[in-house]
Design a protein around this nucleic acid. Structure first.
Length: 469
RNA sequence: UCCCGCGUAGCUCAGUUGGUUAGAGCAUCUGACUGUUAAUCAGAGGGUCGUAGGUUCGAGUCCUACCGCGGGAGCCA
């Protein structure tokens, strides 16, 4: 039997449905108010929009006393009736119900955690299965979706191919982070080698495997065949990080472009960020207004600034000079050769420049083996995009395409080249200058929404000690 | 992982130098009112004070460990 056609609340409130229409609305109760005229006003949400729809239930509805007056926050219902201009203030239209069917009651309304009031984010994390019913989480989820769509649209429109790099992998992308082990071995009876170590040859894949910490090495292979490619998928880091901007499982976007150098890479990063944030401003105005008012003042202006202005660009050396001239003390010393600390990044983006900055050409000692060595032989063609409020949002580099230099770097860093045989092959056969970067998807959402903690911008956050749900 | 702080009703919080029966607002339930906008008014129910030990005649309050959360740091995206 065909399902009766229903109308999304977003479509009703956007004015796409003429008043006088008969509509069927499916959703959940946010609040119920009983008024002095023997009618009840039920605010219904269905996740499609910020504002709830007011459904008016007259006292002469057959189930008014038995059911309508028992509605509490969270009840699921279907309301059928006429879309009319509202007689009250606060909304332009409302649905005059002819029928209200309650599909799902709330068991024990007193202890139902989602109330029409503000909750702390810490509390909501403990009920991650119910928190999408709140305004903030629903709004951030819509923004997350819009951002993800914009990411794919940007790359698609610019001739990039989406490469589904493997989740299970043997490469650790050289110190990008600790890997989660993937194994089918019996943990209580692990096979041993004669030397006493774990005999990984008896494991499922015949060798040590883990969850990917980066798709970069794999996507480089496709880059050196299809020129413009990107990954967008889950990424895992088994670091014991307990911060507002780290997750053990997050989504990363990693474009990789051939016939390109570091400048092209920085241009791409800038165009890309501008594109996806314009999309949010245009597609999610209600959500942005909500974040501006309820989450963090200045969020919209920050996005508009980023979209309008060019990013600042400076070399690592220039950044060091700027920090040395800073009129404030730092806990960590500013010295050429040291990596930039959080306090240094914050000074650059939040005090000195007040906008995102691309810092390029870091000392080679503090960067990965695959980053291209510059002519000065002291620095590599690395870049970090630093943003006010969240720090490093993008990390990337031009890759070392010269096999002899790559081998030298691996030797310097005591890496065994045999494990990288196929990565070296890419330099043996038709090598070409290429570059790419990694963007933490959740950090981009944080930047767009102003949410202070990364655990609020992913549906079910994974962090040390937390994998419930 | 390190430093600092916090954990009291379904939620948000108060709780004095350790001392009788641990309080408020919201939510829930009952009633009043009957076109409301966080509706209003009256009443009622609701507590393993994060967990486990310890000190004490007596612990929400003091001590220890653990767990969780928050702020800062490290690692990074």
């Amino acid at each position: 039997m065909a399902k009766e056609k229903s109308t999304r609340i977003a479509d009703i409130l956007n004015g796409r449905i003429p008043t006088g229409s008969e509509v069927r609305v499916e959703g959940w109760v946010r609040t119920r108010r009983d008024s002095k005229a023997g009618v009840s006003f039920v605010q219904v949400y269905d996740g499609s929009t910020m504002a709830p729809l007011q459904v008016v239930a007259d006292g002469d509805l057959p189930n008014y006393a038995d059911e309508v007056l028992r509605l509490t926050s969270g009840c699921a219902l279907v309301a059928q009736g006429t879309l009319v201009e509202s007689r009250g203030r606060g909304q332009t239209v409302e649905v005059q119900a002819k029928e209200m069917d309650v599909l799902g009651w709330v068991d024990d309304p007193e202890s139902y955690p989602i109330q029409p009031k503000s909750h702390t984010f810490e509390f909501l994390r403990d009920i991650a299965h119910l928190r999408p019913r709140t305004n903030t989480i629903a709004a951030v989820t819509r923004v997350r979706h819009a951002l993800a769509m914009a990411v794919h649209r940007f790359f698609h429109e610019n001739g990039f191919y989406w490469i589904h790099t493997p989740i299970i992998t043997t490469n650790d992308a050289e110190g990008a982070g600790e890997m989660f082990r993937v194994s089918t071995l019996d943990l209580s009876n692990v096979p041993r080698t004669v030397e006493g170590g774990v005999d990984w040859t008896q494991d499922f894949f015949g060798q040590r495997t883990g969850l990917t910490v980066s798709g970069q090495l794999n996507v480089e292979a496709f880059c050196l065949a299809m020129a413009r490619v990107y990954t967008f998928g889950p990424t895992f880091r088994a670091e014991n990080s307990n911060t507002a901007r780290h997750l053990a499982e997050f989504w990363m976007i990693e474009p990789e472009i051939a016939f390109a150098d570091l400048r092209d890479n920085a241009d791409l990063a800038e165009d890309f960020l501008r594109y996806i944030f314009i999309a949010i401003l245009e597609e999610c105005p209600e959500e942005m207004a909500f974040f501006e008012e309820r989450v963090q003042k200045g969020t919209i202006e920050r996005l508009e600034d980023l979209v309008r202005d060019n990013f600042e660009r400076m070399t690592y050396g220039e950044a060091i000079t700027a920090l040395e001239r800073a009129d404030q003390p730092f806990t960590y010393p500013v010295r050429w050769g040291n990596d930039l600390q959080t306090e240094h990044e914050r000074y650059l983006t939040e005090k000195l420049l007040k906008k995102p900055v691309v810092v390029m050409n870091y000392p080679k000692e503090i960067k990965a083996f695959y980053m291209r060595v510059n002519d000065d032989d002291r620095t590599v063609a690395a870049m970090d995009v630093l943003a006010p409020g969240i720090g490093e949002i993008i990390g990337g580099s031009q890759r070392e395409e010269r096999l002899d230099v790559l081998d030298l770097r691996m030797e310097e860093m005591s890496l065994d080249p045999t494990g990288y045989w196929w990565y070296r092959d890419l330099r043996r056969y038709g090598t070409v200058p290429h570059a790419g970067f990694g963007l933490g998807f959740e950090r981009a959402i944080q930047y767009a929404t102003g949410l202070a903690n990364i655990r609020e911008v992913i549906p079910f956050p994974r962090s040390p000690g937390n994998a419930e749900f």
